[in-house]
Design a protein around this nucleic acid. Structure first.
Length: 729
DNA sequence: GCCGTGTTATTTTTT
DNA sequence: ATAACACGGC
């Protein structure tokens, strides 16, 4: 198979330009991934570059996985030798291998922002800083911003000016001490430490520089400074650095992504070639030109004219609804119409929104109409309490001196170690700069000067110590799944998890977590534990998203980047939400919001729907939102639907509920369904078999409450919509 | 040490 | 409006 086949002129040029620095500016839908993968395959096949001498960095694990799969198809199993991953995972690997040069333990843990926050709170407590005066989250983001600017704690201290910076500086310093003592790195550390290690160890850097002949960076517009620097470091020997990005899709500045990297790239490599991909293969002409109109309103932007030979396609439909519930219902009805009459598959359709909270109304509507759906993000799987508990146990087996995890589970399930006792342990640990685990060991060995505790507490901490010791010992010879089982067994976690009312759900989550560990089962005990914990820390919901056949996708605009769907619904296009309230005052941030909208629009292949609601419950209150200013930027001739849309002012509705009455015509409940009674057994294509536990007939429909399988739970469905069938009992 | 109630912040986006 | 969190009583 010819790798160069079927590429357009620019794509071809991008693939064939293999020498020296290269910037590929790739608009949405222009075949970016295709170019990257073909370029890699071309390097290997045409020039005989060994796969292990090529590194490609992506933004998400999902993107990495996709790239790997495509390369596998293109060049077979040797693709396994390529270095492909997110910056974070690539750096984690480098640090596992060579971090000992800067005193890192091979089994270091990776802290997520939750762990980070706990540690920061602990530091603040130590320094007697009132969390009401200084929000821990704010401090956290300042520290993160500092690290993203390559400023370490010492550097920060030197330049701290204001009182706030003074405070941050103290916390930063202590935070860094503690995170090191816990043998952990946070996300930013993964990058910063790698950069610093290379900076201070020339021989080591040389080793990597010599190895990697080609460096590729995807989603370059969303890289931060350390990431760019690392890419530069790695590429410094051969200068074959290829970065691919689209400034118009830069939406992560809040995570310290620095769009100036693109400008700097041109400055740092004046000899760099620049190739722009402008032919869009994804969207209809209508959608593309709407996108183009929206983005062209940004001031800070290099012009780029996308074009397509695709057909005009349908007009963009803009719909106004009264409140978020009606918005959700209206969306779901249209989704179902697309499925029923236009032959769309639900998995080809996505609903996108600005903030996760918006998913709720949509989810409820899906449940009511019995529409199978999957929510990406939301309460993240690894963030669930029960899952984090088990992770904490695993981390302790890795390193019992890790205080954050220890404090988390020392009394979970309850074993009689209360706050009082724990405080005592923490306090002593702090003043003597030793871990809580060491304090416990000391007390039990009856070392001098250890805090004295009531006999009852001593018994409790002794039991805990023995538990951890037993588990550590056992886990040395067990694979990761068996280790999890031992944890569950010795802690009695199953009973603990199941006892409260959401118990079954929690237990299901644990079993799912255990299932995820299976993948690491055939590794050695330590290897498996390290790798599994790393994978848990670095992967997100999006990565584990498996296209559940036939499910509608609910997703934030941010997460949707890089994806495409036949039909896209963007909801909540209102001032305050789609330019988000927090971004409306700052022109720079406003432009980022517009880019976010642009990203959403350009996900759509053939149909685009834009929704807004007049009323939206915001933090309890009842908010009325104006239509988004961005709607004005879509030319009217591309829009079907409301004729008044161009004047936003007119869209502010009177307070009455007149719109509420405009409802979908009543659907008749079919005969077979109306016969369903309480106690009947029914089956549902997605939820399986369930039993009717309640039945309420309203004037228009029959609402059924159905108890499904334990992991699906209880759902309320409308008889007219839900694709259910009565089973003979 | 545990459980309940009241208070408070919290909601932007995530590797 | 919701959920985490703190405080106080048992």
């Amino acid at each position: 198979m010819n790798i160069l086949e079927g590429l357009n002129k620019e794509q071809l040029k991008a693939v064939e330009t293999v020498d020296g620095p290269l910037l590929i500016v790739a608009g949405p839908g222009t075949g970016k991934t295709r170019v990257i993968t073909h370029r890699i395959a071309y390097l290997v096949n045409q020039f005989g570059v060994k796969p292990h001498r090529i590194a490609a960095m992506t933004f998400t694990n999902k993107a990495a996985r996709e790239m790997r799969e495509r390369l596998q198809a293109l060049m077979g199993p040797i693709s396994n030798n390529l270095t492909i991953g997110t910056f974070h995972s690539v750096c984690a690997n480098i640090l596992r291998r060579d971090g000992h040069h800067i005193g890192l333990d091979r089994g270091f843990l990776i802290y997520d922002s939750d762990d980070q926050l706990k540690l920061i709170k602990g530091c603040m407590e130590e320094h007697e800083i009132d969390p009401r005066k200084f929000a821990p989250r704010a401090i956290q983001s300042h520290i993160s911003a500092a690290k993203s600017s390559l400023i370490d704690a010492e550097g920060y201290a030197i330049h701290a000016q204001s009182y706030l910076e003074e405070v941050i500086s103290r916390i930063y310093k202590r935070y860094q001490e503690l995170i090191r003592r816990n043998k952990a790195l946070d996300f930013d550390d993964l990058l910063l430490s790698t950069y610093q290690m290379f900076n201070t160890n020339e021989a080591l850097l040389k080793k990597y520089q010599t190895r990697y002949i080609h460096i590729l960076v995807d989603e370059f517009q969303d890289t931060n400074i350390p990431q760019y620097r690392i890419a530069q470091q790695l590429a410094d020997q051969y200068k074959n650095i290829c970065v691919v990005g689209d400034p118009d899709q830069s939406i992560y500045s809040w995570r310290n992504a620095d769009i100036r990297n693109i400008l700097n790239f041109k400055k740092d490599y004046p000899e760099a070639q620049i190739i722009t991909l402008e032919e869009n293969y994804r969207s209809t002409e209508t959608i593309l030109s709407a996108a183009q109109s929206v983005i062209s309103k940004n001031q800070e932007r290099v012009d780029k004219e996308l074009w397509t030979t695709n057909t005009k396609g349908s007009l963009i439909k803009i719909t106004e609804e009264h409140d978020e519930e009606e918005e959700a219902q209206s969306v779901i009805r249209e989704v179902e119409r697309l499925v029923d009459t236009d032959g769309y598959n639900r998995s080809e359709i996505a609903i996108m929104y600005r903030v996760n909270a918006q998913s709720r109304a949509l989810e409820e509507a899906c449940l009511r109409y019995g529409v199978p759906y999957q929510i990406i993000g939301g309460v993240k799987f690894y963030q669930r309490r029960e899952v984090k508990d088990i992770i904490a146990y695993l981390r302790l087996l890795m390193n019992p001196h890790e205080d954050v995890s220890l404090t988390r589970i020392i009394n979970i399930p309850n074993r009689g170690i209360g706050q009082r006792t724990l405080d005592e342990l923490i306090q002593y640990g702090r003043t003597n700069e030793i871990s809580i685990f060491s304090v416990i060991q000391g007390i039990i060995k009856q070392d001098n000067n250890m805090p004295s505790l009531p006999a009852r507490s001593i018994r409790a901490i002794t039991d805990f110590l023995n538990l951890i010791r037993l588990l550590s010992k056992e886990s040395q010879e067990l694979d990761i799944v068996e280790t999890i089982d031992k944890i569950l067994e010795h802690t009695g976690y199953q009973h603990f998890a199941q006892k409260d009312e959401r118990g079954e759900e929690r237990w299901e989550n644990i079993l799912e977590f255990r299932g995820l560990a299976q993948e690491f089962k055939n590794m050695g005990p330590e290897e498996g534990l390290i790798t599994f914990l790393e994978s848990v820390s670095l992967s997100t919901d999006l990565d584990t998203m498996e296209d559940e056949a036939g499910s509608l996708t609910l997703i934030t605009l941010h997460q949707a980047k890089g994806l495409e769907f036949s039909a896209v619904f963007i909801v909540g296009i209102e001032d305050g939400l789609l330019p988000h309230l927090r971004s409306m005052n700052d022109p720079g941030q406003l432009e980022e919001e517009r880019r976010l909208f642009y990203v959403g629009i350009t996900r759509a292949k053939s149909r685009l729907y834009l929704y807004r609601a007049f009323h939206r419950r915001i933090m309890g209150g009842n908010g009325q939102n104006d239509a988004s200013r961005f709607l004005d930027d879509i030319p009217r001739n591309l829009i079907a639907g409301l004729p008044v849309i161009s004047t936003r002012q007119r869209l502010i509705t009177p307070k009455n509920d007149s719109l509420k009455t405009i409802k979908q015509p009543i659907r008749l409940v079919s005969d077979s369904k109306s016969k369903i009674r309480i106690g009947d057994k029914i089956s549902h294509p997605k939820f399986g078999v369930g039993i009717i536990v309640n039945r309420v007939a309203t004037d228009q429909d029959i609402e059924l409450t159905v108890a499904f399988d334990k992991n699906k739970g209880i759902k309320r469905l409308l008889a007219s919509y839900a694709p259910i069938e009565k089973l003979e009992s």
